[in-house]
Design a protein around this nucleic acid. Structure first.
Length: 882
RNA sequence: GGGAGCUUAGCUCAGCUGGUUCAGAGCAUCUGCCUUACAAGCAGAGGGUCAUAGGUUCGAAUCCUAUAGCUCCCACCA
């Protein structure tokens, strides 16, 4: 006993048990037809990423679900892995090369990819090691990576298939161009940020006007005037009637353009005249299409101006803006400048301001894929927790747009389209296949395989992630393989609401398209981890604590508990280290309960159990059974924090404060064997229900309770099951006992009586349930009483308290302040009279009595009678005092 | 601009089909305790017009309507 420290030390325990679990391969799952599978696929973090608080929350939840399901007898398989994250990773590699004086454009694709793989080998998978620190029970033998061969091939074969089905097409579209990463982005990767900018009012001279007439056009982007091909006004705008048939001259550029008339223009905004730059604005592009306007692209890919930029060619777009504004002012062509706040699209990955750009990209037609995917969610075949996200999902799915799946990057799955010298192309899984196809199609054009040139672009990362639940089991390449047949569909998906469209929706589409089956049954949306000020935790704000430091400080169990404590599904988690501290304290509390129990000695000769112990054991078993029922309920609704809190309260209050205190032997005395064994068995069961939340501590205690005799890990033990019948009388009686104890303790506190001084207690009233010997003994023990006796009359010179209909007396003789006692009684009587009056009012209301259910009316009558009785008791007490 | 959601104790949140789970929990606070498992602790206590205003009902934190404030998602307003 002495060798157990009074403080729980997580560090050594955690390392020891994680190593033990790995050695014994307890996280690994294999097909077992006698068991039901329970499958989770991890949302694959970026391969070069490091753990942040969001991961901590997300993976704690998955681990709780995984560990619990295993203990419930399922064949649990939690598949870990990482995502190649093409933009993010490529950006990092480019930056790294730059530091070493190497530019990406100086490298061949092969050379670059070699660097990228080196980077991946060096930094990849750090995050997986961090998950181990958190205690995650992933099946590490099954670790996958979205760029590994099998998954790469799966992606390519899906691309080819969708192309052949006519769902993938190539087209010129206005795309979101990231001029820093030099790639197109999907709409979802663009974040609109509010920005203070300026609205510039430029003068466009009317061509041929003798009087120097001009039209003022408002724009936020004066640097794009070189790309102007029209000015548009609303046809109903009378101010501009005179422009019909006229042409305008672009300032500085001195090129004449048409005036067009379209309802699209808002008369109220600016001057009601809009400059049209089809190559650099989506709306302008659409108007350009409508009116057959020319598109002049004035930017290079990196957003510097090209030869159309005239004297500004070569300048960056923002520098050009400054310069052009200055030039306009100097030439008097700037009418005025106003402050203006608007929203500007920025790249999620590089934060660069997005440039709308016309380009040739690959698209996936979404409409037909979206329909069935919407249905399975609306019909609850796939359930969302919380369900409010069904709305969000529905809205998006009904307005889904085609998905731009090409990215102008090298790190990723390269698009399997092969171009012929005649600008035609074929799509095939391999170059050899492509060659055969091309030869068949264009025998005259193609002679050698070298005549084919593969598309330079790679696929959007999400185009591989959307296959994740299938491809981790190789179900794309081998649709009938045993693994996919056994483990798919997966059970629970735990993810962030931010990627409901990026990922969740698309996985559902892919699942239905390629397995004709949903990819998962439940989706648990975690909240966003925020700091105390309510800001989202992010690297750029630097407001996120380092998770590994937290684990070192509070223990993985403490941090896990801290994360869960304040995060119901879908609610944001306002993180505070205090939660981790609470978690650590809880671990310590349990640790000390263990120290207590391990310190007990038993008397083997003593056959019988004390009355005290007997009742306490029965009671705690009832309470524990209640706990099991509550946990079942909470888990069925995915209310993990509620489940956690229920265990917390059970352990701290019921188990430690009442049960252990009830059976704790006097110092130096043994405990009866029966009680001892029951306590150990209960302790084990508590560790089992707690294990999914606090895996390390519970494993440690599980073994200490058994003196390390068992080889079995707690993770492979069977979760205790609830019985359905409960002994509610016992629970009620115990509560009354507790109330009496609390009342006596309160009196001690009020009167400043040391807990060491034993007191006599007299009880008036019906004590049949409570004052049988067993409860009397318990009350005496808890409240430190010298005697406990029922009486029929009030006891003079006592402090009194009402517990239900029982009246307690503790004689204190001279210690009593009569006035105090009187005042307290009077206050209580006043309160009760008020209460009685309100009940009476209700009862005298005829329609209440007539319309309310009988049981409610009865309840009110009982309240009335009880209050009346109490008042009588108190009043007689009061008159005695006087 | 469109949509969804939220507002209950100092903080974070429960409160399901309106009524004995109805005003709750944890943390924080206050008071007293170094009581032989635990001061990372023990015992006790205080604290809320359930955002506001109407309505429905015998009865509203709960249902309806409006108002205010907050949050998130979607959308191309120069």
């Amino acid at each position: 006993m002495n060798e157990i420290s009074s403080k729980y030390n997580p560090q050594e325990v955690e390392n020891k048990w994680y190593a033990y679990w790995l050695e014994n391969n307890v996280f690994h799952s294999e097909i077992d037809e006698t068991k039901t599978p329970y499958t989770i696929v991890i949302p694959p973090p970026n391969v070069t990423g490091i753990l942040h608080m969001g991961h901590m929350l997300n993976n704690t939840i998955q681990d709780v679900l995984a560990r619990r399901s295993k203990m419930l007898g399922f064949n649990t398989c939690w598949i870990p892995g990482t995502d190649h994250a093409s933009i993010a990773t490529e950006a990092k590699v480019v930056a790294k090369l730059k530091e070493n004086g190497i530019e990406k454009q100086d490298l061949t694709r092969e050379e670059f990819l070699q660097h990228a793989w080196e980077w991946k080998e060096k930094h990849g998978g750090i995050i997986l090691e961090q998950l181990k620190k958190l205690g995650c029970s992933c099946d590490w033998q099954r670790t996958r990576f979205t760029m590994e061969e099998a998954l790469y091939e799966s992606v390519i074969s899906v691309f080819v298939d969708l192309y052949n089905k006519g769902l993938i097409y190539r087209g010129v579209r206005m795309v979101n161009w990231d001029p820093k990463a030099l790639t197109a982005l999907s709409d979802e990767e663009v974040i609109f940020k509010e920005q203070k900018s300026k609205l510039y009012y430029l003068k466009y001279m009317i061509e041929g006007s003798q009087t120097g007439e001009y039209v003022v056009v408002a724009t936020t982007r004066p640097e794009t005037i070189m790309g102007d091909t029209a000015v548009c006004v609303n046809p109903t705008d009378e101010r501009y009637n005179h422009l019909k048939g006229k042409r305008l001259v672009i300032p500085i550029v001195n090129r004449a353009i048409d005036v067009i008339f379209d309802e699209y223009v808002d008369k109220e905004f600016g001057t009601g005249a809009l400059k049209i730059t089809p190559a650099h604005d989506l709306n302008d592009y659409n108007l350009g299409l409508k009116y057959g306007l020319e598109s002049i692209n004035i930017f290079n890919d990196n957003a510097t101006l090209n030869e159309y930029g005239l004297q500004y060619a070569g300048l960056d777009r923002f520098e050009c803006r400054r310069k052009i504004v200055k030039d306009l002012e100097e030439t008097g062509l700037m009418e005025r400048i106003e402050d203006y706040t608007n929203k500007i699209g920025c790249s999620e990955r590089t934060d660069a301001v997005i440039e709308p750009k016309l380009s040739l990209q690959w698209f996936l037609r979404m409409e037909d894929l979206a329909k069935p995917a919407l249905e399975v969610v609306m019909s609850d075949e796939i359930r969302f927790y919380p369900s409010k996200f069904k709305n969000t999902y529905k809205h998006w799915m009904e307005n889904v747009k085609d998905w731009c799946i090409s990215r102008q990057l090298w790190w990723g799955q390269r698009i399997p389209a092969y171009y012929l010298p005649n600008r035609e192309f074929v799509v095939a899984k391999t170059k050899e296949e492509a060659f055969e196809m091309a030869k068949a199609k264009f025998p005259d054009v193609i002679h050698s395989i070298e005549d084919l040139k593969q598309d330079d672009d790679v696929l959007d990362t999400w185009f591989s992630s959307w296959l994740w639940p299938i491809s981790v089991f190789d179900g794309i390449r081998y649709p009938q393989n045993e693994e996919i047949m056994y483990y798919y569909p997966t059970d629970d998906l735990v993810t962030a609401p931010e990627i409901i469209f990026f990922w969740v929706a698309r996985m559902i589409m892919a699942g239905l398209e390629y397995r004709k089956e949903i990819p998962f049954k439940n989706v648990y949306f975690t909240g966003i981890v925020r700091d105390k000020l309510g800001r989202k935790m992010s690297k750029s704000l630097g407001n996120s604590p380092d998770p590994i430091m937290l684990i070192e400080k509070y223990g993985a169990d403490g941090v896990r508990m801290g994360m869960l404590m304040a995060s119901p599904a879908g609610n944001d988690l306002p993180f505070d280290e205090a939660y981790c501290e609470q978690g650590r304290n809880f671990a310590n509390k349990i640790w000390n309960a263990l120290r207590l129990v391990k310190g007990w000695t038993t008397d083997d000769n003593e056959a019988s159990q004390h009355q005290n112990d007997n009742i306490a054991c029965q009671w705690i078993e009832e309470k524990f059974n209640n706990l099991l029922l509550e946990l079942e309920d909470a888990f069925s609704k995915y209310r993990l924090s509620e489940a956690m809190m229920q265990i917390y309260k059970f352990v701290w209050d019921d188990f430690c404060s009442w049960f252990l205190e009830a059976v704790k032997p006097e110092y130096g005395k043994p405990v009866s064997k029966i009680t001892y064994l029951k306590t150990l068995s209960l302790f084990e069961k508590i560790m089992q229900v707690l294990h999914p939340f606090m895996p390390f501590l519970t494993e440690e205690i599980w073994h200490l309770l058994r003196n390390n005799a068992a080889n079995e890990t707690i993770m492979q033990s069977e979760m205790p099951k609830a019985k359905t019948e409960t002994n509610s009388q016992l629970l009620q009686d115990f509560i009354q006992m507790q109330e009496i104890v609390i009342a006596v303790r309160a009196i001690r506190n009020e009167k400043n009586i040391s807990p060491k001084a034993a007191l006599p207690l007299f009880i008036k009233g019906d004590v049949s349930g409570t004052l049988t010997n067993q409860y009397a003994a318990l009350i005496s023990k808890f409240a430190n009483l010298s005697e406990i006796k029922p009486v029929f009359n009030a006891v003079e010179g006592s402090v009194t308290k009402l517990v239900g209909s029982l009246e307690l007396f503790i004689p204190l003789g001279d210690n009593i302040n009569k006035e105090d006692e009187q005042r307290k009684l009077e206050e209580e009587i006043t309160y009760l009279k008020g209460f009685m009056a309100s009940v009476e009012k209700k009862l005298s209301n005829e329609s209440f009595v007539a319309k309310a259910p009988q049981s409610v009316v009865e309840g009110e009558r009982k309240k009335f009678a009880d209050a009346k009785e109490k008042i009588q008791t108190l009043q007689s007490r009061l008159s005695q005092l006087r």
